[in-house]
Design a protein around this nucleic acid. Structure first.
Lengths: 105, 105
DNA sequence: GATAACTGCAACTATTTGATTGCATTTCCT
DNA sequence: AGGAAATGCAATCAAATAGTTGCAGTTATC
């Protein structure tokens, strides 16, 4: 289990604007144009963010006639959460082991 | 529950070099100089990364004589994981509700 | 007390990236 | 068919950031 696939997901999640997009999509699917109506950035900026989010599997495009709606994918978030939790627990486990050895037990 | 405090943590985690620092620290506390011996970047670059990681609570400085050792904090990672999991689950819950309404149930 | 090792600060560079404007293209609807 | 609304692509700009070098300040150790 490497962090190769994990890091780009965090990079994607490390931007406020992308979170506001995700938050909006969390209330229902929407197109880039529709999102541009609600957020203080241009449609093109939103389109780029959506491309980033799609790249890391946080969002999925759905063609509906002439527009492309985007759906947020909770699974990717919960999967990422599980991996993070495992890594954090592993750190604490190892450091506790080192401490035990240092105390000569 | 806002994402204000969450986003900087992700921004910090969205960099490969910082992960290699975290991975090294996961095997035991170390100073910036010690880390510079193992990683292909300068001590000063590592110092900057450690400052970022400390800022978001992923790492903690421990003064030991003339050097400053850093310890990785698994709790911050597991806490972040819980919040992520909750958000992802909420998205799926809402979208399922919308789908039910759309189907007229 | 001198020297060596470690940390801290500052200036600078190059790359990345978030955001914009402008235009071309596709697709629906009357 | 023609107009309106949506997406796609390209060039450009400014700010953020990862990285470097150089030097000053601290703290052990001999």
């Amino acid at each position: 289990m490497t962090t190769d696939t994990l890091v780009p997901v965090f990079a994607a999640l490390g931007d406020e604007t992308r979170w506001s997009i995700l938050a909006a999509l969390g209330e229902g699917d929407a197109s880039a144009s529709a999102l541009a109506g609600r957020l203080p950035v241009t449609r093109q900026a939103i389109a780029k963010h959506l491309a980033v989010l799609q790249e890391v599997g946080l969002v999925e495009p759905i063609r509906v006639g002439r527009e492309v709606q985007y759906r947020v994918l909770g699974k990717q978030l919960t999967d990422t959460a599980r991996r993070l939790d495992a890594i954090g627990a592993e750190w604490d486990r190892r450091l506790a082991a080192i401490k035990r050895i240092a105390e000569g037990l």
